[in-house]
Design a protein around this nucleic acid. Structure first.
Lengths: 208, 208
DNA sequence: CCGGCAATGTGATCAATATCACCAAGTGGG
DNA sequence: CCCACTTGGTGATATTGATCACATTGCCGG
């Protein structure tokens, strides 16, 4: 059982206790879709353990990787959608087996009025994700594919906390809305520069 | 003097009164920078009259148009930044002479605890802008320049409330991070399709 | 240990768009 | 009313990345 007070040190003790008693703990397997683009959101989600990726999908099946949620992170989207009964604008998928805390949305209003630290937490969460979105926009709008790939690898290295990223070239291509051949060629170049090494279905990230 | 209750019908009367008494009204000229990328934000901004554009700039001077703020809109960025004393991630510039209401940031916390309608307003504001950002990401990530140009023109038609958009090809090119020649050629195609007519320094938008 | 599939490697070609090099047309100030 | 400047028009060329076609490699189950 993961302790909330260590994971969310900025929150009031009383709030943490209320989260413990009223939140729902849930474990989901790798690959589970937590939020589905277009589906209504009923709870705010906090990640206790594991890794979740958020990505944008369009109607033609294209997708683009946005950011990861790690332990202690709350899902900004679920906050802002849950609070006005709206549907999700992105898809969230568990990258590994993941433990979550679900907070029913009717708690949100009451907490906002009773716990200033909850307000700070919400605003801080939203702000962080907004900045990640803007950084992603910078990448897509202003950078070429080689830089975007490097950015993607850096982000993943931070999130997975390991040198070895288990992913195929085709998967990267899909998450960057590119094509497999292009990613293969760019990875090859990075490998020649000594920044990464390539294995089957995995990439070893050295100095990016 | 613009009446706040008509502009912001979702807010409590008591809150509106407090906004009237504690908010600062300000008029700025066309071209004024309201938020500057990297500068700290001291107030939350609500647009009373006029039009403001928000755009992302990178370090190399590239820019990309994000969205407009119209009367009754609050600046989501100023809310989320003001509340934790952070700097702006986008630039906001007045497109026309614009009247604003500035709300000092120390009011925010107290209002969140006293006025549920203020919380709803904040969440709704943030959500709307988040959706606009995601729509922009879709455009950049998944659409070609011709579709992005059409989207840009549609957005502007909605915001300016007029058929005639006063803008040069070079300005559009900058806001879409493209080049003047490409925009000229694409506009020419749209004109041939009868969707727009071209004038010097202006575009007449018919049926987009 | 082999047959088949998933993953990767690679050249050729194509499409979109950026860039360059101009020219032409409108416009506003002196 | 003319000159300089801004804006728009247009062909040629370069670059990036997508697509196609196919070869190779590694791996896993029978």
């Amino acid at each position: 059982m993961i302790k909330l007070d260590a994971l969310l040190p900025s929150l009031d003790t009383a709030l943490i206790e209320e989260m413990e008693s009223k939140g729902i703990r849930k474990t989901v397997n790798e690959g589970t879709i937590l939020l589905d683009s277009g589906q209504p959101i009923r709870n705010t989600i906090i990640i206790l353990d594991g890794l979740v990726k958020l990505y944008r999908e369009d109607t033609d099946g294209n997708e683009y990787f946005m950011y990861h949620l790690e332990p202690g992170d709350a899902c900004a989207l679920s906050m802002v959608c849950a609070m006005n009964y709206r549907t999700s604008a992105m898809t969230a998928k568990a990258v590994t087996d993941t433990r979550l805390l679900l907070l029913p949305l009717d708690l949100m209003d009451s907490w906002m009025q009773r716990y200033p630290s909850w307000n700070q937490f919400i605003v801080c969460t939203i702000r962080t994700r907004l900045e990640e979105l803007l950084e992603t926009i910078d990448q897509i709008a202003f950078r070429k594919m080689d830089e975007r790939l490097l950015f993607y690898l850096k982000k993943h290295k931070e999130s997975i906390g390991s040198e070895e990223l288990q992913v195929t070239h085709a998967e990267i291509a899909q998450e960057l809305n590119s094509s497999r051949e292009v990613i293969t060629r760019l990875l090859r170049k990075l490998a020649e520069q000594g920044k990464i090494s390539l294995k089957r279905s995995a990439i070893i990230l050295h100095d990016l």
